[in-house]
Computed example of a mutant assay.
Amino acid sequence: MVSSPVTGADANTLAALNSMHVGNVFLKGRSYDGAPAVAALVNQLKATVNAKSTGGVKQFVATDQEGGLVQIMNGPGFSAMPSAIDQTGVSPAQLKTEATSWGQQLAAAGVNVNFAPVLDTVPSAAFAPQNAPIGHFGRQYGYTPQAVSSYGVSAALGFAASGVAPTVKHFPGLGRVTENTDVASGVTDPTTSRNDPYLLPFKDAVNSGVRWVMVSNALYPRIDATNIAPFSPVVINQMLRGDLGFNGIVVSDDICDAVQLSPYAVANRGVNFLAAGGTMALCTNQALLPAMYQGLVQRSKADPAFAKLVDAAALKVLEIKAESGLL
């Protein structure tokens, strides 16, 4: 999945779609021009793809529309969404209704995947300001796994009811870290374990039928002391797919711009993610995508076993696209 500025595609995005046939787009940044402007961009992105070269397979077009400080699309046609912690001011049933409405706004603009809701549990209101990626921004649905599950899964079901696929994140959780993987390296959660009670929201979301889960970029030494989560077979294959029984799309968090990934060569990042069991690598720096793409191609040519993993990931994406009416 390659990124495009939500205010207009650039040459790098268009090259990824046309030359490398990347099949999915993430709309990033901030737009205040409303739904018509977003719809025009989505139509442009769709029109630039050669149907013959892709077999007519349509794109997943994703964005980050959580609410509060994390709302990429604004202006006429998009509600001003409250932050997750403020979304809990209504009942879970009412939140599902509101999320359906927010999802309908995205769908009307051509967006069919939302990287929300956040299912990370922050341990307490007192700790929230110290939790840089989640609590600091009010992205949490509460301070117990039960509360997060109740509200977060309701939001997910609301988006799904609108025809926009929810993407629950950031498995196995970012509520206990103090630094943000986007802007810091060595971000570690020393607490979360394989059978941690804080996994409940993700378990409930999987049981509710979500088809997308985003993996955190943090390190979880009590789970896998060697690999950060997106490169961890324990996190992806054993926990998410095995313990929770998830059989949908495992999408990475951004693995291009995130400072947490800075120790790893760009060409190896997509390879490591798919080797660990991932399905779709997200690159929010479209200028870096060719290096990650070439790394995948070269490894596939040199390693037949890895090539089979790539084929399996592509097939999974096609299966979910079939479910979503994109074939």
Rank of each mutant, 00 (worst) to 15 (best):
67 G>R: 09
201 P>A: 07
296 L>Q: 08
96 K>W: 13
109 A>N: 08
180 N>E: 13
85 I>N: 05
103 G>C: 11
232 S>K: 10
88 T>Q: 08
188 T>H: 08
87 Q>H: 02
147 A>S: 07
151 Y>Q: 07
261 L>F: 10
60 F>C: 05
250 V>E: 09
91 S>M: 12
109 A>S: 15
106 L>I: 02
92 P>S: 00
34 G>R: 12
77 G>A: 04
84 A>K: 00
61 V>D: 09
313 A>G: 00
60 F>M: 04
274 L>K: 12
164 V>F: 11
142 G>M: 00
36 P>K: 09
198 Y>N: 06
193 S>L: 09
75 G>E: 11
161 A>F: 10
65 Q>K: 06
221 P>F: 14
207 N>Q: 15
295 G>F: 11
102 W>Q: 13
167 T>W: 10
310 V>I: 15
23 G>T: 00
106 L>C: 07
310 V>E: 10
6 V>A: 14
193 S>Q: 10
203 K>N: 04
29 G>Y: 09
24 N>R: 08
4 S>K: 12
68 G>V: 03
125 A>F: 03
324 S>N: 06
86 D>Y: 06
91 S>D: 02
325 G>I: 03
99 A>L: 12
280 M>T: 13
39 A>E: 12
133 P>N: 01
104 Q>S: 15
186 G>A: 04
315 L>R: 00
192 T>L: 13
234 V>W: 07
76 P>W: 06
198 Y>A: 04
38 V>Q: 09
136 H>K: 09
22 V>F: 13
104 Q>E: 13
314 A>S: 05
142 G>E: 02
261 L>G: 05
146 Q>F: 03
94 Q>T: 11
254 D>E: 12
210 V>W: 13
318 L>P: 05
149 S>E: 12
146 Q>P: 00
311 D>R: 08
262 S>C: 01
301 K>I: 10
119 L>R: 02
11 A>L: 02
31 S>D: 10
119 L>S: 04
42 V>W: 03
318 L>C: 01
173 G>C: 12
235 V>W: 14
216 S>M: 14
205 A>G: 06
57 V>C: 01
242 G>F: 02
188 T>Q: 12
201 P>Y: 11
146 Q>N: 04
186 G>P: 08
226 T>Q: 15
43 N>T: 02
147 A>N: 03
226 T>P: 10
166 P>K: 14
56 G>N: 00
192 T>P: 04
126 A>M: 01
166 P>C: 12
31 S>C: 10
146 Q>D: 04
237 N>W: 07
29 G>T: 01
271 V>K: 15
3 S>F: 13
90 V>Q: 06
302 A>V: 08
155 A>S: 08
119 L>Y: 03
327 L>Y: 12
175 G>Q: 14
49 V>L: 06
13 T>C: 07
252 S>V: 05
77 G>H: 04
135 G>I: 00
278 G>N: 08
15 A>M: 00
122 V>I: 02
226 T>K: 15
44 Q>T: 02
69 L>C: 02
294 Q>F: 02
118 V>C: 07
87 Q>M: 09
20 M>D: 03
145 P>C: 01
245 G>R: 11
258 A>L: 10
79 S>A: 07
325 G>N: 01
8 G>C: 03
141 Y>T: 02
300 S>P: 11
125 A>M: 01
326 L>T: 03
185 S>D: 09
221 P>N: 14
224 D>R: 08
199 L>S: 07
168 V>D: 12
100 T>E: 14
62 A>Q: 01
97 T>S: 15
234 V>L: 07
293 Y>T: 02
59 Q>T: 01
321 K>C: 00
